[in-house]
Amino acid sequence: MNCIENLHKAYILTWIGDYKTASELARECMQLLSDSVEIRRKVKEVLKKADREYKISKKLREESINTTDLIQVALYYLAKRLSVKKDNDIEIIEKGNIKLSVIEHLLVKEVRGYCEGCRGYKYSLLTSAKGYLILYDEIIYAEFFEGNKDDVINEILKNTKL
């Protein structure tokens, strides 16, 4: 798995609340991008030297910093943000290639999920509770109220076979 795929997965996992796995993936990516330290130092020097904003691109070219280097630095900073550990008080439910979390608000319960390898789009009303379900590629999202959480999760697991 390459760094961009790791960061993509880590971003979605932070959305569902799985900060531990997301942090591990981001740290792996940070190790791969650790050689960007020199590039970051050069970019900081260029930013200090440039007296006008429109001169930055010319000075970057003069220092032989190309687009690929800048993307590498940007990916490093994204990985750094995703690697921050947070307290995980959200219960993560794992069933095969699917990870789900249930977030309870005042009246509405929200299910956020990640289905590795799933493709396609599906929208349906939940039959086990009052609410709806949206499956879009790897992302699972549902909102419901007046229903049992376990019944809704079982219905989501049945519907993820796209």
Rank of each mutant, 00 (worst) to 15 (best):
D89Y: 09
K58T: 14
F145Y: 12
E45A: 14
Q31R: 11
A10W: 01
A50D: 06
I39T: 15
D18W: 00
K161F: 08
A74F: 12
K42N: 07
K44S: 10
Y114K: 00
R61H: 11
T21S: 11
N6E: 03
R119Q: 11
L126V: 08
I140G: 00
E110C: 12
K58C: 04
T68L: 10
K44C: 06
V73H: 02
I65W: 08
Y136Q: 08
L162Q: 08
K49H: 08
Y11V: 06
I134N: 07
Y123C: 06
D87Q: 14
V102M: 09
M30H: 01
K161N: 11
C3E: 13
K99I: 01
L32Y: 12
L135A: 01
K59I: 07
M1F: 11
V108C: 07
K59W: 01
D151H: 13
N2T: 08
E143W: 05
F145V: 11
I16E: 00
T68E: 13
T160L: 04
I56V: 15
K161E: 09
E146H: 13
L107K: 15
I156N: 00
F145H: 14
I139S: 03
S128H: 06
L78V: 15
E143Q: 13
W15A: 07
V46Y: 05
T67K: 12
G17E: 00
L82W: 02
K85Y: 07
G131H: 12
S83E: 10
L75S: 03
E94S: 08
I140H: 00
V84G: 05
K49L: 14
T67Y: 15
V46W: 05
N159L: 15
V108D: 09
G113F: 00
Y19N: 03
E38A: 13
D51K: 15
F145L: 14
D137S: 11
R112T: 00
I65L: 12
Y123H: 14
E155D: 13
L25G: 03
K9A: 07
E63R: 13
V84A: 11
T14G: 00
G147V: 07
D151P: 05
